[in-house]
Design a binder for these strands. Structure first.
Lengths: 323, 323
DNA sequence: CTGAAAGCGCTTACAG
DNA sequence: CTGAAAGCGCTTACAG
C-alpha cells in the first residue's frame, strides 16, 4: 500500500497525492482533486511509510522523550500523558526511553531519527550539540532556574526552600534533612537540600542536620534519635516515601507529631493523605509544567512561538497534620 | 556521514562496507579488509541511517513497548529497565509508548516501524493481526493464564487467590474486597476480585463483600463500618494504596488491626513496610517476568528459541503485622 | 574477492 | 494545473 496505489486509484500522479496529503496550500489544486485523493487514501487505509519519509526529509514525526533512571512517580506519568495528548494534536507521537547505565545516547537518537528530543534529566553538552547538528530540536532540563526557552527548569531548590520556610513559619528553629538512600536520586536530593540550607541561612538559623534515611523503621528510628539529641524539631524529607519512613521512626521512638517533631514531604502521593498523622507535603503543578514543555517542544520545532517564561508558581505546599 | 564515506575512506565499495558492518559471514572477505572497514567506521563515527535501513528492509531495531494508561508502579519501571538492558544486548532499543484515550494504535506502529511490538496490556485482535501482517513480531499480554509463548500472562486471579487464601489461613471466614476508584484499573481489579471470589467458594465461604474505597480516610471509614455490620474480619485490597486507606479507615473507626480486622494489599510499595501496622502484601517477581518477556520477544523475532513456559511462581505473599 | 546497479517509498524542484 | 525524474542511504542479487 504505497502512494503509487493511491495515485493510480485516484487517477492522478504520485506528485499530486503527495501535495494533497501534505496539505500543501501553496500549490494550486482543484478542490475536487483534493477530495478525491483524500477519499481514496482513506478508503485504501493508506499510511505513508514513516521510514521513507524520514529518509527523504531527514526527520520523522516522533518526539523522543528521554527519562532518567530514577523511579517513576505518578507525576512523570501524568506529565507524559499531558505531553502526548498535546503533541498528538500536532501530528507528533511521543516515545519514551528510559536511560539506564551509561549507554551512549547517540545510538538511540540515531536509530529513532526523531524530529525532537526532550530530556527530562539534563543532557551532556556533547550529546545536545550532536543532536542539534543532526537537525534535531532539543529541549533540555535543568534542576535550577534557567531563562532559556529551550530548557525546562524544575528548580529543585525552590522545593527545599518551600519546605524549610513552612517549618520555620510553624516555629521550628533547628531543622533536619532526610536524604534518600538511592544514588540515582542524588542530583535531585542535593538541589533540594541546597534549598533547605539556603532558607535556613536566610532565616538566620543553623544549617540543617543531614541524615540518609532508608525506607524502613529501624533506619528512621536511628535518624530520629540522633536528631533529637541535636535539638531538631522540624524535618524536611526528600520525598513522601522518606517522610513516611520518618513518621514511622518517630512513632517507634514514641515522639509526638507535630508537637515534638514536625515532618514535611514532597510529591503528595496517595499514601501521604492517609498517613497518621496526615503528611504535609509539596505538590507540583504537573499540568502547568506539561503545558510549558509542550510549548517548548513546539517552539524548538518552529511550530509555535517560544513559550512565555515559566511561572515560578509550580509548587504548592499542602499543609496537613504532620506540621 | 554515510556508508559511501566509509567506503571511500577505506578504499572499498559500499557493498563491502555493508557486508563487513552487517557481519555477513556467508560472504568471503579478507580479515584485513574487515578490520580496515571497521576501524574506518569507528574513526569516522559512522552510524548507519536507521531510516534508510528501515526503508530497505521494512523493519528497524526498535522494539515498541505499549503501556496501558494506568498509573505506573515501580514494578513497571523495573520491568522496562530489565527488558531494555536484555534486548540492548541484541542490538535492540526499547521505546515505550503510553496509550491513552482510544487513539488508534496503527498510526503509532506505522510511524515507528518497529521490528517487534510488546503490549503490556491486551491488544485488540484487529490491531495484533494488522501488525503481524506488516511483518512485525507481536507479543501480547493477557490478564489470565495463557499457554501461548507469544503471550505474556499475568494471572491477576492468582493474586486475589493468594490474598484470600492467606486471610482464610489466618482464620477469617467473612472477607471483603476493597476495589479502587479508577476506571483504568477496572480490568485488573475485576480479575483480582474474581480470584478472591473463587478462593472463597473453594473454602466454602460466603462471597466477598465488594466496596469501592477512595484514597481518603472518610471513604475508607464508611467502608469499614459497613463491613463490620456484615461481620467482615478480613479485607483484600486491590493494591497497597487502597490497603493503606483501609488501614486509615480502621484507625479512624478505632478498630484493632489485625485482631478485629486484617488487611492485605498488593505491590509492596515502600510505604507498606513503614505503615502502622506494617502491611501484609503480595510481591511480584518482576525479574522473572522480565526474563520471560525478553525471551518471548526474541523468540517472536526468531532470534531465540521459544521461552520455557512461564513459572506460576511469580507472586509471593509477604506476611507482616496487618494480618 | 569486489563493484555497478536496482530498488525500498517518499518529496520536490523542474518541465510541461 | 499535473507528471517524469532525481535522490535521501541503505542492502543485495548479479556480474565480473
Amino acid at each position: 500500500m504505497t502512494s503509487a496505489d493511491v495515485a493510480r486509484e485516484s487517477g492522478v500522479s504520485r506528485t499530486t497525492v503527495s501535495y494533497v496529503l501534505n496539505d500543501r496550500t501553496d500549490v494550486v489544486l482543484t478542490d475536487a482533486t483534493r477530495q478525491r485523493v483524500i477519499a481514496t487514501a482513506a478508503r485504501l487505509g493508506y499510511t505513508p511509510s514513516a521510514a521513507a519519509r524520514a529518509l527523504r526529509s531527514g526527520r520523522s514525526d516522533l518526539v523522543l522523550c528521554v527519562l532518567p533512571n530514577w523511579t517513576f512517580g505518578p507525576a512523570i506519568d501524568r506529565l507524559i500523558e499531558h505531553l502526548s495528548t498535546a503533541l498528538a494534536a500536532h501530528g507528533l507521537s511521543v516515545l519514551v526511553h528510559i536511560r539506564h547505565g551509561d549507554r551512549p545516547l547517540d545510538e538511540l537518537w540515531r536509530a529513532v531519527t526523531p524530529c525532537a528530543v526532550l530530556g527530562l534529566s539534563p543532557f551532556a553538552e556533547a550529546d545536545a550539540k550532536a543532536m542539534r547538528q543532526a537537525g534535531i530540536a532539543v529541549v533540555g532540563t535543568t534542576l535550577d532556574d534557567d531563562p532559556r526557552p529551550d530548557v525546562f527548569a524544575v528548580p529543585q531548590t525552590s522545593i527545599g526552600a518551600l519546605q524549610a520556610d513552612h517549618l520555620v513559619e510553624r516555629g521550628h528553629r533547628v531543622l533536619a534533612y532526610a536524604a534518600p538512600d538511592d544514588d540515582r536520586l542524588a542530583a535531585f536530593a542535593d538541589r533540594r537540600l541546597a534549598g533547605v540550607r539556603h532558607a535556613c541561612a536566610r532565616h538566620g538559623l543553623p544549617a540543617p542536620h543531614v541524615t540518609t534515611v532508608d525506607l524502613d523503621v529501624a533506619s528512621a528510628c536511628d535518624a530520629v534519635r540522633a536528631w533529637r539529641e541535636q535539638g531538631v524539631t522540624g524535618v524536611a524529607a526528600y520525598n513522601d516515601e522518606v517522610a513516611l519512613a520518618v513518621l514511622a521512626g518517630l512513632r517507634a521512638a514514641c515522639l509526638d507529631v507535630p508537637d515534638e517533631v514536625a515532618v514535611v514531604g514532597v510529591d503528595d502521593i496517595p499514601a501521604a493523605r492517609v498517613a497518621t498523622p496526615a503528611l504535609t507535603t509539596v505538590w507540583q503543578a504537573i499540568d502547568a509544567q506539561a503545558t510549558y514543555l509542550t510549548a517548548a517542544v513546539l517552539a524548538a520545532l518552529r511550530l509555535a512561538e517560544p513559550p512565555p517564561p515559566q511561572s515560578c508558581d509550580v509548587f504548592h505546599l499542602v499543609p496537613r497534620a504532620s506540621t
